[in-house]
């Protein structure tokens, strides 16, 4: 099962060239059942990665391009009057899929953004006084442009907090870009995606993540990292939700590394992408300055 996962990882690396670390982290995020936020300049491959991830997990997915005039109902769905049966029929929106690809999420109005909130956290949608559960598993893979770009409205802290990780791909290395240009004529890069998981395997893997062993010492270290953020005034404090997210992501990272126990290294590897957008919502995803400070200054006795 783990071998399958590694094959998926390899084929993802064929789609996005030279970004092994980000791909591993994004897989971590999905294994830990968390939502993923990709932030980058346009053209760096975030939409490709989002598609590739959704594809490789073998899940049904819908894509929504967020614009400033997108309404909440466009996401959640609306009730339409059926003249024949003389009844209202609920027409489910794109949210009712296993993976929602929310492209350029920060172009939508805050109202629409917050409509996603409930869906992401509660995994359910309430419309017309009726609460409808979302399919399981349910992921949101959102992409966004950096905040300084025209026509963007920042995601509020509350919503950022609901993304387990925020990742940035950044520019490819020269060799990787060279290969990209050489293979350009062959068509979309998504064709390199040869391996897929089926949904049973994914469920199994997610179960295994929860079973990964965490020693008290690692939890202590994790807590001292979180605690350090709470005693400073140059960053926002990390919430208990953040520490839960950190633990889950670390476990997933350990599983991906083929271990059945979590190490301090796992915590340190996932910490920047889990913590940075919670420490400073206005920071850009490419910089990890605050989380680096915490990692360097917090004593790791392990």
């Amino acid at each position: 099962m783990l071998a399958q996962l590694h094959q998926v990882e390899q084929s993802l690396n064929q789609v996005i060239l030279g970004k092994q670390q980000q791909i591993r982290l994004s897989l971590c995020c999905l294994l830990a059942e968390g939502h993923l936020l990709l932030e980058d300049l346009p053209g760096l491959g975030k939409t490709t990665l989002a598609h590739a991830l959704a594809n490789s997990l073998g899940l049904s997915y819908r894509r929504v391009q967020f614009t400033s005039d997108l309404l909440p109902a466009d996401l959640t769905g609306i009730s339409i009057y059926d003249a024949r049966s003389q009844q209202f029929h609920f027409q489910p929106g794109p949210v009712f899929s296993q993976v929602l690809l929310a492209d350029e999420i920060n172009r939508a109005s805050p109202k629409t953004q917050s409509a996603l909130l409930e869906a992401m956290e509660e995994r359910q949608v309430s419309t017309d006084g009726e609460t409808r559960p979302l399919p399981s598993p349910f992921f949101v893979i959102a992409t966004q442009n950096p905040l300084f770009h025209a026509g963007t409205s920042a995601l509020p802290e509350s919503q950022l907090d609901r993304f387990l990780m925020r990742l940035s791909l950044g520019f490819p290395e020269r060799a990787a870009e060279h290969q990209l240009l050489v293979e350009d004529s062959k068509g979309s890069r998504l064709q390199f995606l040869t391996q897929q998981l089926d949904s049973d395997t994914l469920k199994n893997l997610q179960k295994q993540v929860t079973a990964v062993h965490v020693s008290d010492a690692v939890i202590d270290y994790l807590l001292s990292l979180v605690d350090a953020s709470r005693n400073r005034n140059d960053m926002l404090p990390l919430s208990p939700r953040a520490s839960k997210a950190l633990l889950r992501a670390s476990k997933a990272h350990a599983l991906l590394a083929g271990r059945d126990f979590t190490s301090a290294d796992d915590v340190q590897q996932v910490f920047p992408s889990v913590a940075e957008h919670r420490l400073d919502p206005r920071s850009s995803a490419a910089s990890h300055s605050l989380s680096q400070i915490l990692l360097e200054q917090t004593d790791c006795p392990l």
């Binding site: 290294d265 990692l295 917090t298 004593d299 790791c300």
Partner: peptide, 25 residues
């Protein structure tokens, strides 16, 4: 934890050079 204490005892001298945020591995 016990293993940490062991490591501290036997690596005492060089362990001084470990930066605070670094883990032992």
């Amino acid at each position: 934890a016990a293993p940490v204490l062991l490591i501290r005892r036997y690596f005492g001298k060089v362990l001084v050079n470990k930066p605070a945020g670094q883990h032992f591995s």
